[in-house]
């Protein structure tokens, strides 16, 4: 009992120098007023009138601001902050659920209809496999070329620079879908016929190696001159200096932009849909026509999310681990 008392006292004391609107009593009053406003003014559930919708939005934003006022205070317990942010988010979806006027029973039947999915899962697995193959082949080749070109650009050879600069300019400017369509549908007129999969790989590699050339070049050039001097003064040649001194340091700098690029690459494999590569989106689309329900498309969205969000977090972890060099 005394524990709770002292805890409460402690909180009050900690908040003593806070402005009035960040003190617990005023927050409590605000919260009560806000809930009272909901009871009094919010329209009944279902599709509201425009005025009613405006009221709901205004009410939600008021709560949002209230929560914001509370969260920006550094001294409030982290648990309270977490709970508040979570409530605000949950509230958003709940309001949407109640006031959008959507027939939710129909939504489930349409978008999450798993009863007619027999045969679709196998199709799906094939699609996912192709997407993964496309991603990995294109990513590996892009990194190999991007790294090589990036290193070559730091040598300052004007001829190499001209060619690589052109490559970078062109394929950063050209929309992926355009180069992919050109490679698949226009090159055959010149007698160059590529299977759809490899046409997609080529287009992806051309574009992403262009981006990565610049990423690696910037990473390498950001290594201080003194590092190179020190390596050369030890007697390391240019290759060894690159390998043991520059690249390990550049690698760390390059991880955030490189991750961004690789995530885009995986997402961009969906563009291969337009040249009939049987990747995830293509098979999902086929399943939609076959089963006459959009469920497979909705599912494909979750597959993309489930693949890419962990990838992003994984690289963030790696980044933090490499940060260990910078401990003081």
């Amino acid at each position: 009992m005394t524990d709770i008392r002292t805890t409460i006292d402690d909180w009050r004391n900690r908040g003593a120098h806070q402005p009035w609107f960040r003190r617990y009593e005023w927050l409590a009053i605000g919260l009560v007023g806000w809930i009272a406003a909901a009871v009094l003014f919010l329209p009944p559930f279902g599709k509201p009138t425009p005025l009613g919708a405006a009221g709901v939005i205004l009410w939600y934003l008021t709560g949002f601001v209230l929560a914001g006022v509370m969260l920006t205070d550094r001294e409030k317990p982290i648990l309270l902050k977490r709970a508040t942010s979570l409530s605000v988010i949950v509230l958003f979806f709940w309001l949407f659920y109640r006031y959008s006027g959507t027939r939710w029973d129909r939504v489930q039947e349409q978008f999450f209809n798993f009863s007619r999915m027999d045969g679709v899962w196998e199709l799906y697995a094939q699609g996912l496999l192709v997407t993964l193959q496309l991603s990995i082949v294109a990513a590996v080749l892009s990194i190999i070329f991007g790294l090589t070109f990036g290193i070559l650009r730091t040598l300052g050879n004007p001829v190499i620079d001209l060619f690589l600069g052109l490559h970078v300019d062109i394929f950063r400017a050209l929309p992926l879908i355009v180069s992919m369509v050109l490679i698949f549908y226009a090159l055959p007129f010149l007698g160059i016929r590529l299977p759809a999969f490899w046409a997609a790989v080529l287009a992806l590699v051309l574009m992403n190696s262009a981006y990565q050339t610049e990423i690696f070049r910037a990473g390498i050039e950001s290594i201080p001159r003194g590092q190179i001097d020190a390596a050369r003064a030890l007697g390391l040649g240019p290759g060894a200096t690159m390998r043991f001194v520059i690249l390990p340091q550049a690698f760390k700098i390059v991880i955030p932009p490189l991750t961004n690029n690789l995530v885009s690459l995986v997402k961009d494999t969906a563009v291969a849909y337009v040249i009939t590569v049987p990747e995830l989106l293509t098979t999902a689309q086929q399943a939609v026509t076959w089963k006459r329900t959009p469920t497979p498309l909705v599912l494909s969205m979750f597959v993309y999310l489930a693949t890419l969000i962990p990838l992003i977090h994984l690289t963030r972890r790696l980044e933090r681990r490499l940060d260990a060099w910078n401990v003081r």
């Binding site: 003194g226 590092q227 030890l234 040649g237 340091q249 760390k252």
Partner: peptide, 28 residues
């Protein structure tokens, strides 16, 4: 490279390699 290996150099800004331990710096 042979010449440089035989002549040491110490810089104003130390220029140690930050991604290596002290021992690795010296052993490189």
């Amino acid at each position: 490279n042979r010449v440089r290996a035989d002549i040491g150099m110490v810089f104003q800004e130390y220029n140690l390699f930050p991604h290596m331990t002290v021992l690795e710096n010296v052993a490189l």
